[in-house]
């Protein structure tokens, strides 16, 4: 019985498949996170992370900078991929911008205070 059971499914192969599927199903990865960080004084920094691949982050950043009148950069992170960094608290603005451009609001997560 045991041997048969073992033969029935290969744990490693299954695991790989499940992970592949999860990328679409598991909602956790698909969130767009907008966070805020405090700098010195009353300065803040907004980070935008987890944008879908189909957006051109560079162009988006340019639009953000123009729209919000702030500076910003594109940061490469090993774990999170490309992250947009903006100066100042632009969280609400980013979220309205994205929703206006047709990003589903439920995929956006606003963090911070």
């Amino acid at each position: 019985m045991n041997v048969q059971n073992l033969a029935a499914y290969d744990p490693f192969a299954d695991e790989g498949d499940a992970l592949g599927d999860n990328k679409n199903v598991g909602s956790q990865q698909n969130y767009i996170h907008i966070r805020i960080q405090q700098r010195n004084g009353r300065k803040t920094l907004t980070t935008l992370q987890g944008l879908p691949k189909e957006y051109d982050l560079k162009k988006l950043l340019k639009a953000f900078k123009k729209e919000f009148a702030c500076n910003g950069t594109l940061v490469e992170d090993e774990e999170m991929g490309q992250v947009i960094q903006l100066q100042g608290d632009q969280r609400v603005k980013i979220s309205t911008f994205l929703t206006d451009e047709g990003v589903n609001k439920s995929t956006i997560k606003l963090h911070g205070f």
Binding site: Q37, R39, M80, Q85
Partner: peptide, 13 residues
């Protein structure tokens, strides 16, 4: 419930 994730931390200071 989802685990708590810090996410990207920008270099400050």
């Amino acid at each position: 419930v989802s685990a708590i994730k810090t996410g990207f931390q920008a270099q400050v200071g």
